[in-house]
Design a protein around this nucleic acid. Sequence first.
DNA 1: CAGATAACATACAGTCTGTATGCAAATTTG
DNA 2: CAAATTTGCATACAGACTGTATGTTATCTG
Lengths: 208, 208
Amino acid sequence: MQQDSARRSNRDRTEATRADLIAAARKLFTEKSYAETGTPEIVAAAGVTRGALYHHFADKQALFAAVVEQEAAAVAEEIEHASPPSLFARDALIAGSDAYLAAMRAPGRTRLLLLDGPAVLGRAAMDEIDNRHGNRSLREGLVAAMRAQTMTRLPAEALTALFAAAFDRAALAIEAGASAEDYRAVLMALIEGLSPAPPQAPRPVRTR
Amino acid sequence: MQQDSARRSNRDRTEATRADLIAAARKLFTEKSYAETGTPEIVAAAGVTRGALYHHFADKQALFAAVVEQEAAAVAEEIEHASPPSLFARDALIAGSDAYLAAMRAPGRTRLLLLDGPAVLGRAAMDEIDNRHGNRSLREGLVAAMRAQTMTRLPAEALTALFAAAFDRAALAIEAGASAEDYRAVLMALIEGLSPAPPQAPRPVRTR
DNA sequence: CAGATAACATACAGTCTGTATGCAAATTTG
DNA sequence: CAAATTTGCATACAGACTGTATGTTATCTG
């Protein structure tokens, strides 16, 4: 009768405490910064001790990486949920853009994913995470737009990265209080600029 | 005869040790990251003690801010030096772009200015620094291009920020080993995309 | 149902940051 | 120009944090 909680399998225990740690860390990392959040505070919020943390994660960075991974997945999921994939290429791009900017309004997300993430894990690691989640749809959208609308043929990798960077900066600016419409307008103009289809003007692309 | 070094005015001393501290910090912050560089190491390299550091700077962040400020100024100076301001709007933009990408190849600069800077000081503070230095010419170039070539009329603030973000990401990618030509091509295409007036010779260039 | 192993908690060592204190050189002041 | 004061900086200290080592209990295995 006192064995209610003791009847947990080892795997369940691991899974539960890992989830608790990630959840507590996520809350704190989005409220404060990575540097300002100490492991004692995290484990206290999770209801365990630092022993548990260092049993499940190599170090503080590894826990942070798990949080980032989860949050990036959440953003990607929100986007996918908000933008039905069966639209015309450019419409899908626009819908995805708005969904991304909306998703990044969740408190602390910009700092977690756009400031602390790159600084703590490095740009390469963040690229890897992004490519596994959100950027995939962006890249596909851009490639589709390029293909469908004779968008200027450009290296997909670089194009995706630069657009992602612009979206990221827009999210940061909007959170800082800048005009969301201004940034949205510029983003749309950038997309539009690469899709010279509407008027069938001869579009020379001087790259050098 | 033993008073050679003691014959320094107070202001000279301050200036000298401040410069020594910033130089030592710059070297270490570009070799390692902000978090990995401790104040004991910095003061040792500068030949002073931590007492001097905390006498001249409020905290480690303030010293870091001074380093960032100086480095941003150096980048801006390199750009200005490399791109004569008396060219046609778009040519000036292109020259400035290349100069920026070249300047950011200095070891550790991308991490200092593009990763640690925003994370440690915040995006707002970095924007303030950027606007005081490098971004000014970018903004002016964009505005000039908009004006001269009937470039799509867009909010200058947002346009500048998003282009700056794209350039930043390009610098990071190039340093990470990505194809500089690919990124350059995309950047040029983005600029081109906003200038619907074809120059003169529409010769399509293979960018890939 | 022992023995091994996994999931923790506790204790410890090392390092770092920021502050407080002390002292000598420089500057100011009467 | 001597006394008082301020400045520049070194040393000493307090608190906190990270990662590791050790111990203990619960689970899994043969």
